[in-house]
Every structure is written in C-alpha cells, then in structure tokens.
Amino acid sequence: MLKEQEVLSVIASVSDVQLRVWVSKDWVRPAQDGSTPVFNEADVARVRLLDTLINQLEIDHEATPIILSLIDQIHDMRAQMRRVSEVIEEQPDDIRRTILDLMSDGS
C-alpha cells in the first residue's frame, strides 16, 4: 500500500494537485486510513490509466468519467462472460453441443 507521495514518485508525470483532484472526483478510490489516502496496486494502475487518458491523450474532464464508467462496465461484462463460458465448458458434451449450435444459428 502506498501513500500519496510514493505514488507521485512512481508515476512522475502526475502532479500532486492532479492526483488530489482525481481522488476528489472519485476517479481513483484509495482506501482511507483515518484521513490519509492509501493506494493499493489497483489504485496505482488506475492512476496510470488516468495519466494516459488525461495527460497523454488529452481527454477533457467532461469525457473522463464517461470513459471510466464504460471501461468499468466492460470489465464487469467480461467477467460475467468468462463465468458463463466456464459454466458452459463444464457441461456434458451433449448440452455443450446444443448450446453452441443454438448460438451459431440466429441473428
């Protein structure tokens, strides 16, 4: 778990003001240890993502939460899809066959 200063030293292209703004906008959600934000690995990766979107790709603040929301929704959907796929794989052959055949007919 990293503190604010440590995150800033690992990701040099992000300023302390930026990081605080992004936390205040809930784009990165560090856990709170009392009043100190504490960043885990996923949070740090999130900060890198924001750095890419905002500093390198120059996406503005209006579009950023839309993009983050879409990314998060996609990840959730991928996880669900993976799970459905796992369940189908576990089925006996005839059921798997039936499902796969049905999926390749239609729209």
């Binding site: 959600r29 996923a42 990766a45 999130r46 890198r48 990840h75």
Partner: peptide
C-alpha cells in the same frame, strides 16, 4: 489497469 479489473484489490471500481 486491466490486470487488476475485477480483482479483489479493485472492488471499489466495480461498476
């Protein structure tokens, strides 16, 4: 970030 998405350390970002 995609390495962490959905993982136990990224529950705060579940949509």
């Amino acid at each position: 970030y995609k390495e962490y998405a959905g993982g136990e350390n990224a529950q705060q970002y579940r949509s």
